[in-house]
Write a protein that binds this DNA or RNA. Sequence first.
DNA 1: TATATATTGGAATTTTTATTCCATTTTTGT
DNA 2: ACAAAAATGGAATAAAAATTCCAATATATA
Lengths: 286, 286
Amino acid sequence: MRVGRRMDEAEVTTEAPDDFDGLRTLLLSRHDAMPKRLKQLAAFALEHPEDVAFGTVAGIAEHAGVQPSTLVRFAKSLGYDGFSHLQQIFRDRLRERFPDYRERLKGLRDAEGHHVHAASLLDGFSHAAAVSLDRMRGSVRPEELARAIETLAKADTIYLLGARRVFPVIAYCAYAFGKLGVRAILIDHVGQLGPEQLATAAGRDAVLAISFTPYAPVTADLAAAAALRNIPVVAITDSAFSPLVTSADVWLEVAEADFGAFRSLSASFALAMALAVGTAEKRAEG
Amino acid sequence: MRVGRRMDEAEVTTEAPDDFDGLRTLLLSRHDAMPKRLKQLAAFALEHPEDVAFGTVAGIAEHAGVQPSTLVRFAKSLGYDGFSHLQQIFRDRLRERFPDYRERLKGLRDAEGHHVHAASLLDGFSHAAAVSLDRMRGSVRPEELARAIETLAKADTIYLLGARRVFPVIAYCAYAFGKLGVRAILIDHVGQLGPEQLATAAGRDAVLAISFTPYAPVTADLAAAAALRNIPVVAITDSAFSPLVTSADVWLEVAEADFGAFRSLSASFALAMALAVGTAEKRAEG
DNA sequence: TATATATTGGAATTTTTATTCCATTTTTGT
DNA sequence: ACAAAAATGGAATAAAAATTCCAATATATA
């Protein structure tokens, strides 16, 4: 037997699955025993199979945060000839994906009662979300959006206002602004301390308020209070009759679709993310 | 004007569609007026789009019965930089992805500077959301969803676990369950009291936990603690490597698409809503 | 803690792939 | 049928990509 064998040429037994499911299983079983970077790649590959299918070694390596050579090593450690060979598995999967889709719908119908019902609920909510997103294209005007971003970009601190149904959106804004290095304060109104949380806001700051019917009184009240103190208010709401409109310097209209008694929040989220990133970029510019 | 212009550098007007549908239309309209080999390629491309997406110049040329150079000429005659550029359109179609960020800006050029940028951000986030929703159809299996609903429906109280990026989703669950008359407790971990908030949970209850990469340790830890105490855990996560998987009795996979550094949450929301409504309905039944 | 072993980063190399160029053939218009 | 323009094939070249190799680092073992 040869001496001085390097890891690069590691011996491989009977692996190298030739379809995606097999690869997936292999990856899952081996994952715990893998070294750091390879583990990282295994996770990346299963999370972004499309990137692996289409990307180049350099591109994927950058995305996954490893060196190009690690990709080749990864492929070899699984028993493939090299990265190109491994990539083939990912590509094959995509080629077969379209037929898969129809099978699924068929299978959905044949399944038993519960499943169908659960799946159709999911379908219903997905559909409502998709409709909301589509509608937003028509209702949000680019100039207004740009004005909203300008207002927020000029602010020293952004105070985030939203309650009940839209609280998730505003909570997400707090996360996003924080990530982007924009100072923002979430008015979560714990212990009914909303007014106090907003007390430190001044004219150089701004308020981002969100409210949909039935408008939560806190949000409208606090926004009005801010406006009275000459703090710029950017509002996201669902109609021109919203109480927020009178307090707002700029407002954006989003009409979410519903399914059953529940309304989507998808369009609001997309809009909130655009505001956050737009604001951060505008600040970076100057 | 230059003399002796060659066909290779043919002038191109305003073509070069940046999505597959546009390309298809262009190909169909130009087809009749094309020279023999290019016509041949147009037909081949529409008939075997996947081969074009994955193949190499040499390979496709052979398959289609033309010279490699003809492929490059074909791409250029349509207004693309070269074959690689044309191929990108075919690849985008397969991954259902947006044309490049920059390309997008070009398309919205008629508006003024800021507006364009803001609008394309919004477009990007909307699209990521739509893609996420669509993908979910493939990754969530109806039977698993039904099992998750059953587990939650049997529970006395549902404890809601989620932090950081997914906190909005779990916060929304608290709202939805409340509206539906299902007893649920939001573990918001205020004052680091997460473990205490979960202390009252017992085997007759259930935990609904959500976590995506990079997995917040609190969520994984609390879910593991619950599992140890034999409390059923339903998890929503983004890969089989998630630390939640080991603790979960049922887990649902959702891979959200991203735009820039931010991932959508739309699919997670839709799934959460389906779980909530499904649970409420199941309880009402029996 | 010292030593052996595995893992990783990054530059150098090789291979593959796209593109360009030009001589030859085909088509078009007169 | 003839000249001019367009189209084509195929070799030559340039560009991009994958792969290999080795030094540096980290990890495990005694």
